[in-house]
């Protein structure tokens, strides 16, 4: 082997290139013509005639199943359907079978990795640690830790809570962020540990605390479910950064490129604004709550609007 290699290295470079190309032809020459262009997920979809779309069941308004029990819907689902349309076009299979597969935060990554789903359309934060297992399309939504307060409280940011109480759900990233900030700035803010979002909201509703904190979009979800949505508001700057993105399999450059192209097109043409408005202005679960795209999100759309 070493001798062969030494021999090749002594050859002129053009000759070496020809030799390399020849080796490639030998290696892949036997595969059919169409598969030559298709790899990974696209090849899998082409072969099975089905695309498997992973969705969440309660991530309102990103990806959820309504009480009528129909197909999943939401912002992320709409975006994924655009990707599916593109797949149909590329594979020239207009009647491609689309199958929805429910996933949870615990199952979404393994199911994507093992091929049970081909694309995950939910509310997943793009994290570097997750990128060790999966890849992401461009960021489609940006959330982060914010504060939920009553409108008449006069609280606009974390510092306004000095001498007051805030509820935090045990085990959330938001809990850590807020506690770290309180410690860093040595703020005199009392913390009430609650078990979940519902209990945190109940504590705020009953005046037990002055604020509750979690991902800002989830706070809107909580407001829509309250008896008097007009009494609450979400305030403050983002205290953490959680960019949501559609997940695809890792090491599948072709499919990732296809998805990125679809998303970038939506950003560039501005179509994303219509899709966004459909799900966030107002919320599908309550006409009283509307969340226009933040400046940060609009900037992100523009940054990711790659030219063709």
């Amino acid at each position: 082997m070493r001798e062969t290699r030494a021999f090749i290295e002594r050859l002129p470079s053009t000759f070496r290139a020809v030799l390399g190309a020849g080796a490639l032809v030998v290696a892949f020459g036997s595969t059919p013509a169409i598969a030559q262009e298709l790899t990974g997920t696209l090849a899998k979809i082409n072969e099975s005639g089905t695309i498997l779309v992973g969705h969440r069941e309660t991530s309102i308004p990103f990806s959820w199943i309504d009480s009528d029990g129909g197909d999943p819907k939401g912002y992320s689902i709409d975006l994924c359907m655009k990707v599916v349309d593109k797949v149909k076009e590329v594979l020239e299979k207009p009647d491609l079978n689309v199958r929805f597969v429910p996933v949870t935060p615990q199952t979404r990554i393994p199911l994507l990795a093992n091929g049970t789903i081909d694309i995950e359309c939910g509310s997943t934060t793009n994290k570097l640690s997750r990128q060790e297992q999966v890849s992401y399309l461009p960021t489609t939504f940006i959330t982060g830790t914010k504060l939920l307060v009553k409108k008449d409280s006069g609280i606009a940011q974390l510092e306004d809570l000095v001498g007051k109480r805030i509820a935090l759900a045990q085990g959330t990233t938001n809990e850590r962020v807020i506690k770290a900030m309180i410690e860093e700035q040595s703020l005199d803010i009392d913390v009430l540990n609650v078990a979940d979002h519902a209990e945190g909201f109940l504590s705020l509703e009953t005046d037990r605390v002055d604020a509750y904190s979690t991902d800002h979009i989830l706070l809107f979800g909580l407001i829509t479910r309250s008896n008097s949505p007009e009494d609450y508001e979400v305030v403050g700057d983002f205290l953490s950064y959680d960019p949501y993105a559609i997940m695809v399999r890792r090491n599948d450059a072709d499919f990732q490129l296809l998805g990125t192209r679809v998303i970038a097109d939506l950003f560039r043409t501005g179509e994303i604004k219509e899709i966004y408005a459909k799900w966030f202005e107002p919320f599908p679960t309550s006409d009283a709550v509307s969340e226009p795209p933040t400046d940060l999100l609009q900037a992100s759309w523009r940054i990711n609007a790659f030219p063709e």
Partner: peptide, 19 residues
């Protein structure tokens, strides 16, 4: 008592697990 926010032994164990 951890369900109403008292950070007793079990609550603290959970907290350590999460961190």
């Amino acid at each position: 008592a951890l369900t109403i926010g008292v950070l007793e032994t079990t609550a603290r164990s959970r907290q350590i697990t999460e961190f």
